[in-house]
């Protein structure tokens, strides 16, 4: 199975749930959970600007967050 930074689960849905049920729920599991002690000389973003806007020097630590509605 390939690596993901989002995990899913399917909670029990009762026939008496008052709100419209969300069948599939998700939660983030960002990269720092998997990296361990950061090895030296990891690839960095191409430009300083890109790194600033990402919030980190290393793409491996970058976790894009998408707004959920």
């Amino acid at each position: 199975m390939s690596h993901t930074n989002t995990k899913y689960y399917y909670p029990y849905i009762s026939p008496y749930d008052p709100c419209n049920p969300i069948v599939k729920k998700s939660y983030p599991t960002p990269p720092q959970l998997y990296l361990g002690f950061q090895p030296p000389n990891l690839p960095q973003f191409e430009t300083a600007k890109e790194a600033l806007y990402s919030g980190t020097l290393w793409p491996i630590l970058y976790d894009k967050y998408k707004k959920h509605d």
């Binding site: 960002p30 990269p31 720092q32 806007y53 990402s54 919030g55 980190t56 630590l61 970058y62 976790d63 967050y65």
Partner: peptide, 8 residues
């Protein structure tokens, strides 16, 4: 950006 900093 701030969220990413928390990750780092």
């Amino acid at each position: 950006f701030l969220r990413e900093r928390e990750i780092v």
